[in-house]
Amino acid sequence: MSVASIQPTAPEPIIGTAGIPAINLDRVGKNFRLDARREVKAVSDVSMNVGKGAFVAILGPSGCGKSTILRMIASLDEPTKGTLSVLGTTPADCAANHRMGIAFQDHALLPWLTIFDNVALPYRLAHLKADPGRVAQLIDLVGLAGFEKARPKQLSGGMRQRAAIARALLLNPDVLLLDEPFGALDAVTRRQMNVELQRIWSEQRTTTLLVTHSVDEAVFLADRVIVMSGRPGHIIREVAIPFERPRHPDVMRTVEFHHLVNELTEALHPTEGTGAP
C-alpha cells in the first residue's frame, strides 16, 4: 500500500464513487467581527472537494477553524470570501431541501422528546410522513433498542451521542456533517463508537465530513484526511487512506495504520518532529 500525500495548492482530484463533488470549497475565507475595530481571521483560502460517497476527515489544532468550515457547509455561517457549494447548490438551499444530516460534540437532543421522537425529528422538520419502522431500525442500528421511550436525561453520554448519530442518518442524507461527535466520550466508548460508525457507514456510503482531534479516529474512518494549520486555518496536508472497506478494528493494529498515524501526527505538530525516531 502506498500513501498519497499531495500538496494542497490546487483543488484535489476527487476521491469517491461518482465524479460529481458533493461538497466544493473554492478559496473560502471567513473573518469574524469581534467589535467595531477588531476581527478574527478564522479560515483563509481553503479549497477542497469531497466526492459523492467519500468520507473525509479534518484534523487541526484547536481554534484553527475546523468547526467554522463545517458550519459554513451546514449553512450556519456565511463565508466572507470565496464560494462554497453543496450538491451543486448553496448550503442554504441544501438545508432547506432537508438533505443534510449533522451531529455536534454536544448531542443536541431535545430534552422534552423521547429518544424515538428525537430520532424522528428530521421527518417533522422536513414535513415527511414519519416511518416508524425506519426510526426503530436506526435506533436498533446504534444499539439503543429498548430505549425508544426513554428521555435523553435518562441515558449515558455515549448513548445520547449514538441517538444523535441515528438522527443524523434518518433521512438518508446526501451529506453527513460530524463535528467531534465523540469528543465528549471516554476512550473506550469512543473506540466502540468508531467501530459502529464504520460499520454503519460502510453499509450506507453517505458523503461524510468529519471534524476530529483524534488521529486514530480519522485514519480508521476516513478515505482521506485533511490537516489544517493553526489560525488562520488553511490546508497544509492531505493524505489518502487506502484500507479496504468494511474495515475491521484489527486494522488499527497494522504497521500501515501506525505509519499513517505517525505521519499525520507529525504534520499536526511539526516542531516535535526533530527528536522523533
Binding site: 449553512s75 438545508a95 432547506a96 443534510m100 449533522i102 454536544d106 443536541a108 422538520l125
Partner: peptide, 15 residues
Amino acid sequence: THGDLFTAYGANRYD
C-alpha cells in the same frame, strides 16, 4: 446548538 440543528435540518419559522 439546538438552534443550529434546526437550521441545518431546514426547519421553517413555524416549525
